[in-house]
Amino acid sequence: MNRQQRLKLYDIQHRAFNEGTVEQINNQWIFFDEETDEATMLEDFIHQEIEIFRLNRWRKGILNEPGKIHCGKEVILFRDHDLIRIRKHLVYSLERLLDGVNDDAFFQFITTLNSLNFSIYDCIYCYNHLSFLSDEHRKDGVNFMVFDNQEQICNVQHHFCYYEKVNDRFEFTLNTGKRLIIEKIIS
């Protein structure tokens, strides 16, 4: 699995975006989050990837100044009540962790998490012990992650041992008591 295939899995995650509308108020563009009803100055998202819904499809571009998205060579100007979505950022330690695990473990972790109705963007806490072992020949320990999808909480323990064999074990525990364990061993 190459980097592009991994990014494709990121793209299809639920709750990967903050969706809402924009309005110009007092010559300033404001983003109104559909889920939380929070209002945010659009200038807070300068130089970030933003998508705008135009002509029945999402158009991806970069917000270089409030009110304008650059989609390649085209510039799209906002209109009041345009529907936009802004990609959420992953918790940094989770992003580093996902970059550090092998392709099989990455795929199994993401698909299992998704099957439990959670997204990697639901992560509210991640302790990545693996990042502290970068210079070690034998790497073993546990990473801890907590996910909240607004309906349930999921705690994940990632037990790893990278030495003669590569062993990744993920233990998923939901607040309902449901538990699921997956393990991948590569010799």
Rank of each mutant, 00 (worst) to 15 (best):
V91E: 15
D99A: 15
Q152R: 10
L77Y: 11
H137Y: 12
L98V: 02
K73H: 07
N2M: 04
R96T: 09
D82I: 01
R85S: 03
T40K: 11
H129T: 05
M41W: 06
G67C: 05
Q150N: 08
E151K: 14
K88R: 10
P66L: 04
S119C: 00
I86S: 02
E19P: 08
G100H: 04
Q5K: 10
D33A: 05
C126Q: 07
M1E: 10
N167F: 05
H81V: 05
K184Y: 14
Y162F: 15
G20R: 00
K73A: 13
I120R: 08
Q4M: 11
R54G: 08
D82W: 04
K139I: 14
D33F: 00
T176H: 03
D82K: 00
E183V: 13
K8I: 08
R15I: 06
F144I: 12
L174E: 08
N64M: 07
N149T: 00
T111R: 11
A16Q: 08
I153Y: 12
V156I: 13
H159V: 07
Q24S: 12
N27G: 00
F107I: 10
I52V: 09
I84R: 07
F78A: 04
E164L: 06
D168M: 04
N18D: 07
Q108L: 15
T40M: 11
T21S: 12
Q108C: 12
S93D: 14
F118Y: 06
F147I: 01
N64F: 08
H158L: 01
N114L: 05
Q5E: 15
L116A: 09
R3Y: 03
E38W: 09
W29P: 10
K73C: 04
H158N: 06
S119D: 11
N26D: 12
G67R: 00
I46V: 07
Y10R: 10
E23R: 15
F170M: 01
Q108P: 11
C71I: 11
K60Y: 00
R79H: 09
H158S: 07
L83S: 08
E95A: 04
E151H: 15
R15H: 03
E34Y: 10
K184A: 08
H159L: 06
F107W: 07
F147H: 01
S93Y: 00
P66Q: 11
N102A: 11
I84C: 03
L90P: 03
D82E: 02
S134R: 15
L98G: 02
N18C: 13
E43Y: 01
E183Y: 05
V142C: 07
F45S: 04
K68P: 05
V146P: 01
F53N: 07
E49Q: 13
N149W: 04
H47W: 04
E34K: 15
R87E: 11
N18E: 14
I153L: 05
K165E: 14
K139W: 07
N128Y: 02
N114M: 02
H14T: 15
G177R: 15
L63W: 12
F106D: 09
K165D: 14
N56Q: 13
F53K: 02
T21A: 03
C126F: 03
H47Q: 12
H70L: 10
L94R: 02
Y127L: 13
R6A: 04
D80V: 06
L98N: 01
K68I: 10
N18V: 10
N26P: 00
F118S: 02
N26W: 02
C123N: 14
Q157Y: 03
